[in-house]
C-alpha cells in the first residue's frame, strides 16, 4: 500500500536527474569540460569549496562540541542554539546572501569598516568562501555532534583521571573517536559549498574567474548555451553523487548518530 507513494517519491527525486544524464551532450562533453565555459568556473568552485570546507572544520568542530555540551543547559538557550545553527539549512540562500551583504557589504555594519581600510569584501573570491561557509557550516556541526553523542565518553574520563589536560583529552581521545564523523561532515560541507548559488550571487556577485562559480556559470549558460549548462550541471551532479556514495549511511544528515 505504501509502496506506491514511496516509488512515486523516489521517481520525483531521481527522474529529473536521469533526464539530465539522458539529455547531456555526451558527444561534446570532452570539448565542453575542457573549454572556457566549464574549466575556469570548475577550478574556482573546487578551490573555494575546499577553503570553505577548511573554514567549516576550524569553526564547526568547536561549535559541535558546544552544541553537545548544551545538553546540560536550560531548555530555552539550548533550543535557541540548535535553532540558530539550523537556520542556514532552511533559509533561502538568497536571504543568507542579503544578510551577509547587510553585515559585510560595502555599506554593511562591519563591511563599511573593512571598505574604509581598503579591504572591501563583495566581488572578491573571499566573499564566495564566506557565503559557502555560511550555508555549509551546519552540515559539519550536525555530523560531528551526532558522532560525539554516539561515542563512549568513558575514555575521556579515564584520560582525565590519568592527568591529561582538557586540550590533551580532546586531541588524543575525543578527536580520534569522532574522526569518521568529522570526515563525513567535511564531505557534506564540500558538496554543499560546491552547489552554493543564491548566497554567492547575492553577496559576492558574478565575475568570470573571480566569483563566477560552477552553479552561477551553469545558470547563465542556460541563457546562451544550454548544452554547456547541462554539462556544468552534470559535473555538479557527479561530484555530489561521488561524495554521498562514499559516505556510510549513518553519517547522512538526519540519521547521524
Amino acid at each position: 500500500m505504501l509502496l506506491i507513494p514511496a516509488l512515486l517519491g523516489l521517481a520525483l527525486l531521481v527522474l529529473p536527474l536521469l533526464a539530465l544524464a539522458v539529455r547531456a551532450p555526451w558527444g561534446r562533453l570532452g570539448e565542453l569540460l575542457t573549454g572556457d565555459a566549464v574549466l575556469p568556473p570548475l577550478l574556482l568552485s573546487l578551490g573555494t569549496a575546499a577553503l570553505a570546507t577548511l573554514a567549516c572544520l576550524v569553526l564547526g568542530v568547536p561549535l559541535a562540541l558546544l552544541l553537545e555540551r548544551s545538553a546540560a543547559w536550560p531548555l530555552v538557550p539550548r533550543r535557541l542554539l540548535r535553532a540558530l545553527l539550523t537556520l542556514p539549512l532552511v533559509l533561502p540562500p538568497v536571504v543568507g546572501g542579503i544578510a551577509l551583504l547587510l553585515l559585510l557589504g560595502r555599506r554593511g555594519l562591519i563591511g563599511q569598516g573593512l571598505a574604509a581600510i581598503g579591504l572591501p569584501l563583495p566581488y572578491t573570491t573571499g566573499a564566495v568562501v564566506i557565503a559557502q561557509t555560511f550555508v555549509a557550516l551546519p552540515f559539519l556541526v550536525f555530523a560531528v555532534e551526532g558522532a560525539l553523542r554516539s561515542t563512549d565518553r568513558r575514555g575521556e574520563l579515564a584520560a582525565a583521571t590519568l592527568g591529561a589536560s582538557r586540550a590533551q583529552t580532546f586531541r588524543l581521545v575525543t578527536l580520534p573517536l569522532v574522526a569518521p564523523g568529522v570526515a563525513a561532515g567535511a564531505a557534506l560541507c564540500f558538496t554543499r559549498a560546491l552547489g552554493e548559488f543564491g548566497a554567492t550571487i547575492t553577496f559576492a556577485g558574478s565575475l568570470p574567474g573571480v566569483t563566477r562559480t560552477l552553479p552561477i556559470a551553469s545558470y547563465l549558460a542556460l541563457q546562451s548555451d544550454p548544452e554547456a549548462a547541462i554539462a556544468l550541471a552534470l559535473v555538479l551532479l557527479v561530484a555530489a553523487v561521488a561524495v554521498l556514495v562514499a559516505l556510510r549511511d549513518r553519517w547522512l544528515p538526519g540519521v547521524a548518530g
Partner: peptide
Amino acid sequence: MTRGREPGRR
C-alpha cells in the same frame, strides 16, 4: 537539505 538554486527564482 535545502539546495541553493532554483532556476525559476528570477
